[in-house]
Nucleic acid binder design. Structure first.
Lengths: 264, 264
DNA sequence: CGAGTTGGTTCCATTATTTGAAACTTGGTT
DNA sequence: AACCAAGTTTCAAATAATGGAACCAACTCG
């Protein structure tokens, strides 16, 4: 039993929110019977939890199809969360600049419960399609931003995060063991940036840097993604400079934001 | 005591989520003492609720400043909610078309707890800035989309929604009484579209239509916004046609989505 | 300096809520 | 008509939530 897995502690509220996660993970409306086996809760208990969540608009219950899906209240709450707690609002200008300058896809990510949470994105040229991208999650062990963030975690938090990785071999180059990952993280820490060279998806490479506060706290990560077809490894490495600069600028903005006035 | 105000029923979970809303409403990180008076809960209870929420990443607690703000877990959950439960994904193409054709700001909204929840938006020309817009809420009684939706609510739900309106007089034209609102809603139901003629903001007008399922259920609303400076009332009214068509197309898409196969 | 104040945290006996096995209802299938 | 699966309700026992009060800073002020 690790310190506190969100699920088990926190009494009724924690258990209920775990069910919410479960429903969200399906990615489609689900029926009671589909949730049951995964929830590991007595029928009656799960039933009551779902009722409460639906009542609370945290879930939307479709009467006709008898399915549950994440509800609209979450969208409203997330708006608030994104605006206040994510790096996105204060990084906006900096990311715009970076994307303009290098003309490639840019991702801004934060770490959420051991997974990569994308909080903002700029596509190479087409109009931004944000909410459908912002809020999306991805694996940490095989993405540039993921590794960049893991590399700057405290030992305890790293262990916790590693225990949540699934280490699925997406491509032949995917890192699939905790040991190999730790070695890679040490390297990343040394050179200051992470590479994802077709570890997650064939033909896709990216360079990522962590966003670190003055005191060394890991706030998030920034990456530029390219296709191996269009961009050589050297060209990709050449982006390290601009991306690192942008990352530093975001860190500075975060610092300024969190301590806006000296004393007053 | 009305049937079920989300707050009071639903036991511990409901009460805890009410606190989450409370924090989100502030729109900025807040301290314990600021939440206290509004929560109407004993100190110890509120304290525990906040602890649990922070533990669950539903809130983010800033150790240094001792403040709570909505947490990143909400962003992840909302992504799921937006993709599955909102009209946005299936309306996307239709809205793109509409915005292209008429070149004005377009809003797609749904009703959430008596308030307008914007789920998608197209700006007149500049790149979309979505998450900062999607998830945003606004008043129902003085916006086009709000009135369009209220007009197609069942009596019971309408009463419930009206009881949640604040009826603040934003401009000289704002409707400020439930009676006047009900009269306006009858008119809207008759003619099929709602107008907001500088009721919310001076210089801003909009035309909105409800999105109704075949069975008459109100799914959301669609609006086009213009400035009174650039667009005459007649020009605005001329948009009723295209907007209504788009709304019908969205309703059809929703219908098709919810009943994809006949029997299989 | 020390008494007072505000903001935050912890205790713990009481109480109300949650719990879940089992019974029941509903709707569909053979 | 009997059967089965999915979903809903019941109710006594078990547990977890409750909140008044005490406690602990960290400031402020006389």
């Amino acid at each position: 039993m690790t310190a506190h897995d969100r699920e088990t502690s926190d009494g009724t509220v924690g258990r209920t929110l775990a069910v919410l996660d479960l429903v969200a993970e399906f990615g489609r409306p689900v029926r009671f019977a589909e949730i049951m086996p995964r929830a590991g809760l007595p029928k009656a208990t799960l039933y009551r939890f779902l009722q409460v969540l639906a009542n609370q608009d945290m879930l939307l219950f479709d009467e006709d199809r008898q399915t549950y899906a994440p509800g609209m209240r979450l969208v409203r709450l997330a708006h608030s969360a994104w605006a206040q707690s994510s790096l996105a609002p204060l990084a906006k200008g900096i990311i715009d600049d970076l994307a303009d300058r290098i003309g490639q896809t840019v991702h801004l990510a934060q770490l959420d419960n051991g997974a990569v949470l994308y909080v903002d994105k700029r596509n190479a040229r087409q109009p931004v399609e944000m909410f459908s991208q912002s809020g999306k999650i991805g694996p940490a062990y095989c993405t540039g931003v993921g590794k960049a963030m893991l590399a700057h975690l405290s030992d305890a938090r790293l262990e916790q995060a590693i225990s949540r990785q699934s280490f699925h071999g997406h491509t032949p180059r995917t890192i699939t063991t905790p040991e190999a990952l730790k070695a890679e993280l040490a390297l990343i820490r040394d050179r200051g940036y992470a590479l994802d060279d077709e570890e997650h998806e064939a033909g896709i490479a990216c360079i990522a840097v962590p966003i670190l506060s003055k005191s060394g706290r890991m706030l998030g990560a920034l990456s530029v993604t390219t296709t191996t077809a269009a961009t050589s490894r050297d060209q990709l490495l050449a982006l390290a400079g601009p991306v690192t600069d942008a990352s530093a600028a975001i860190a500075a903005a975060a610092e300024a934001w969190r301590f806006p006035e000296t004393k007053q």
